[in-house]
Design a protein around this nucleic acid. Structure first.
Length: 854
RNA sequence: GCGGGCGUGGCGGAAUUGGCAGACGCGCCGGACUCAAAAUCCGGUUCUGGUGACAGAGUGUCGGUUCGACCCCGACCGCCCGCACCA
């Protein structure tokens, strides 16, 4: 009994594909194209099985589409700018560039071990000037088109390290390294006007019919269109007004306070003369800038002592508070609170003893007896206690309130979006330099095209905190391209989402030097037909890319709105986490089982097993890929990643599964290389007739072809694996040694090997070769099912009595209802269950079920 | 807090989308081969009762719609993801 030698085979076939240029993509307008793309990785160090799952999924699609005759583009690259490189620089005294390129080198080698069908000639790394110079040009075009602008915005500031902190570096309101309480600071930064496309980005979601519904819904909610009323309250005793936005103008008579954001200009003005308020604002700012932190914090307020006049009730005033849950970025940065009909307002009112005035009464409730307890009433009803709105329902009330406000000239009905413009400035070294110059005389001056790219200086140090670009002795000192005077280079770099917002277009023509991409090539390949990546990118990266594609089109680069025609979100690969007694994370390979209890392998110390979590370096619950490939081969690893869990669901990596996959690889190997019957030569004509056994196997073969194609089209790869295993079992069980059996076995093996090819390409090539075929399986077309062998003449039909299964009967396919009914009722077990009584009703679902209602 | 998702045997999952719950695999149990082990092969494996045919229960919990519910509706519980400077 032989074993599959994966080491030899994988090396051989990888070399063969390479030599034949099997996966090189060339534009060919005469053939239908198919662009498969997996989200390119950040080169964090080593490839783990979580990455590998993503690429295995994409490779199945790419190889399947290739076999179907599409001209496939399947590229790979590196999203190479980012924070971890700077952290490594600080921790290990390596240059971010050296660290990054070394990681790319290692990870590229690991990817190549997997035998993925990439066109490696199209590889890009975003941290190279060859890539980012085009990004700088794109930005300058956006600037010209008015899509880029500067405004002040808040950042997390670590007062000890004198550094801007990313949200993930703020832990419980403190800087991750210094432990200092984080402050918020206002900086002037670059923004891209994504809100210009808010309506279009929202409307076009409906057309993304090959995207998961959940992603479309999340994007819709993220854009967050809502209509309502914007109006102003007069501040008592002052000249100015407070503008608010509300989606519930119908509840205006139930208003009992106005709340300002801690960052509202009026708050700032009042705080100047009010140290207590200034203290409150400072406390709010300690929460950092993340919305999650702000929204989950305890609701806090500060009474400013100001009041505003109620716009519809002369003489009535409302107190003005500052509240930590009012976001300056949404609406006008101020709200009115109606505690009776909004839960957050109610919690706030109860806490600070503010009025709760119900104005919406559910149908049938007597207004005099209707009380608000701990829960705000947000349902439908009739308005009361509401002056001219009394008696209207909620929707009519909204319209009437807006109309009155417009008559009064105090406000207007408007639509607002939750979506905010995209802040792209980062105060970091390892990113694409923003190509502008600040001149005292000329203001913001674009770096002229002939001076692009603005390259990152390599002589930087990370010994001191802060941005090394800003500290660099010479880099930022330049002369103004406009007036020639002394000027200062922008030292901020781009958010790394900028690079990933157009890389899919760069892949169309990664070698062109004078443009971001060749338009004809981009328009040939785009949109991406199938994009595959983690759900965690469901909103930001995908939305930014959709925006970028539109903006590029507006600037004349392209004529395209949507970059990704098909989208698949893949679940995470999870693994248990382990900690020792001191709470330090351990790698899975550092943990051993002793008498069923996990202990540290080195000294037997107790280990605490944590919950399953997404594989991440920080928690050390990563399973390296290289060791797996070394011990079991790429195909076994690929098979395991594709079996079991459906792609969109999380997959728990277990060591147990790999043995099962390896077992199957060998089972398949032996089925083909040691057939029970000697196989006829390739291409031998079919015998005139087949035995029942041979025919049965042929049926399974063709049914499998049909089912696998359907499952592949829907990305149900785990089911593909199950079906392929069933075919393997059927072929292995084939009895008889006649000509028909031998022929059916060859047919089955060839089909099996072809079906398995997208998943386990090395093994499939090897077996194809052993079956006596001279060419590459990679060049073979996808098999087609013979319809005559797929459909059976009889069907098994379940018989239920009162919804409970009592028998199974065999019926001719598509037989008459009367016949089905008769056969079903004749079943002894059915008779018994009915206790001799006649049926009241019989429901016949053709070819499926007969349900007898007794 | 807000938005989104998920929940089925000991485990991963399947169920043609309202029609036989548990395909396929892992694990486990028993057997064959072997001096023995590994590998391989054969059989069994949702739970309860029964030697058995069979009967009853069963898809996170509670309720509803239906001839029929893992699937649809309502309420709840648990876990996971995102929340704009991680990528």
């Amino acid at each position: 009994m032989s074993r599959y030698n994966f080491k030899e085979s994988e090396a051989r076939w990888q070399a063969a594909w390479n030599e034949h240029g099997s996966f090189r993509a060339v534009e060919d307008p005469s053939r239908p194209k198919y662009y498969v793309l997996e989200m390119f990785p950040y080169p964090s160090g080593r490839l783990h099985v979580g990455h590998a799952r993503n690429y295995a999924l994409g490779d199945v699609v790419a190889r399947y589409k290739r076999a179907q005759g599409f001209n496939v583009l399947h590229p790979m690259g590196w999203d190479a700018f980012g924070l971890p490189a700077e952290n490594a620089a600080i921790a290990n005294k390596v240059h971010p560039a050296d660290w990054t390129f070394e990681n790319i080198r290692v990870m590229r080698g690991q990817l190549q071990l997997m035998g993925l069908s990439y066109d490696w000639e199209r590889e890009v790394a975003t941290c190279t000037p060859e890539y980012y110079k085009h990004e700088q040009k794109i930005f300058l075009d956006f600037l010209k088109a008015g899509l880029a602008y500067r405004k002040e915005s808040w950042v997390n500031w670590d007062p000890v390290e004198h550094t801007v902190l990313a949200n993930e570096q703020v832990i419980d309101g403190r800087g991750w390294r210094s432990g200092a309480l984080v402050e918020k600071r206002k900086l002037s930064q670059w923004f891209l006007e994504i809100t210009r496309y808010a309506e279009e980005l929202l409307a076009a979601i409906a057309g993304l019919d090959r995207w998961p519904d959940k992603v479309r819904l999340m994007q819709e909610n993220w854009i967050g269109k809502s209509s309502g009323l914007r109006f102003a309250f007069d501040v008592v005793g002052r000249e100015d007004r407070i503008e608010v936005f509300t989606t519930r103008p119908d509840t205006l008579f139930g208003a009992s306070f106005v709340a300002l954001s801690p960052n509202h200009p009026l708050t700032a003005e009042l705080a100047e003369k009010n140290p207590a308020l200034a203290g409150f604002v400072a406390e709010c700012n300690r929460l950092g800038t993340s919305e999650a932190a702000i929204e989950t914090a305890e609701k806090l307020g500060y009474d400013t002592g100001l009041t505003v006049a109620h716009p519809f009730q002369p003489g009535r005033t409302l107190p003005v508070w500052v509240a930590n849950f009012v976001l300056m970025e949404y609406g006008t940065g101020a709200i009115f609170g109606c505690p009776a009909h909004d839960q957050r307002d109610l919690d706030f009112a109860r806490k600070y003893g503010l009025d709760v005035i119900p104005v919406v009464f559910p149908e049938g409730a007597a207004p005099a007896e209707f009380r608000i307890g701990d829960e705000a009433y947000t349902g439908p009803g009739r308005l009361g206690n509401s002056g001219f709105l009394d008696g209207l329902d909620v929707e009519d009330g909204k319209r009437a309130a807006i109309a009155r406000m417009e008559e009064l000239g105090r406000g207007e009905g408007t639509t607002i979006y939750r979506l905010r413009d995209w802040g792209v400035s980062r105060q970091r070294y390892w990113g694409c330099p923003i190509p502008v110059i600040h001149c005292e005389a000329c203001g913001i001056v674009a770096v002229p095209d002939d001076q692009l790219p603005v390259e990152l200086p390599s002589d930087v140090d990370f010994d001191e905190p802060g941005n090394p670009l800003d500290r660099h002795p010479t880099w930022k000192h330049v002369s103004c391209p406009s007036c020639g005077g002394a000027a200062r280079r922008e030292t901020d770099t781009f958010d790394t989402f900028v690079e990933s917002s157009w890389y899919f277009a760069r892949f169309a023509s990664p070698k062109v030097e004078d443009r971001a991409f060749d338009r004809a090539a981009a328009e040939y390949w785009l949109p991406v037909d199938q994009y595959i990546g983690g759900v965690e990118h469901a909103v930001l990266h995908l939305l930014y890319s959709r925006f970028f594609t539109r903006a590029l089109s507006e600037c004349g680069y392209l004529d395209l709105a949507e970059p990704f025609a098909g989208m698949m979100t893949q679940g995470m690969v999870t693994h248990a986490t382990y900690r020792d007694r001191d709470g330090l994370w351990l790698y899975p390979e550092e943990v051993a089982l002793r008498d069923g209890t996990p202990v540290r392998a080195s000294d037997g110390a107790p280990v605490e097993v944590g919950r399953l979590e997404k594989m991440s370096k920080s928690k050390k619950n990563v399973v390296g890929l290289e060791g797996m490939i070394e011990s079991y081969g790429a195909d076994t690893v690929r098979l395991l990643l594709l079996s079991d869990s459906p792609p969109e669901r999380d997959l728990e990596w277990t060591e147990a599964g790999i043995d099962g996959a390896w077992r199957y690889v060998n089972r398949l190997w032996r089925l083909v290389t040691e057939p029970a019957v000697p196989l006829p030569p390739p291409g031998a004509p079919a015998p005139a007739s087949f035995s029942d056994a041979a025919l049965a196997v042929r049926r399974v073969t063709h049914k499998t072809v049909a089912a696998v194609a359907q499952d592949l089209d829907r990305f149900h790869f785990n089911k593909v694996v199950a079906r392929v295993r069933e075919l393997t079992n059927a072929l292995a069980d084939l009895q008889g040694a006649g000509e028909g059996e031998a022929w059916a076995l060859r047919e089955g093996c060839e089909v099996l090997v072809t079906l398995v090819n997208p998943m386990m390409p090395h093994l499939a090539e090897e077996l194809w070769h052993r079956l006596g075929h001279p060419g590459l399986l990679a060049d073979q077309p996808w098999p087609e099912a013979d319809p005559a062998l797929v459909v059976e003449d009889t069907v098994k039909v379940a018989v239920q009595v009162n919804g409970k299964l009592r028998a199974t009967i065999e019926l001719p396919r598509d037989c008459a209802e009367a016949e089905a009914r008769e056969v079903a009722l004749a079943e002894p077990n059915v008779q018994r269950a009915m206790d001799g009584k006649p049926p009241r009703k019989v429901i016949v679902v053709p070819n499926r079920i007969v349900n007898v209602v007794a």
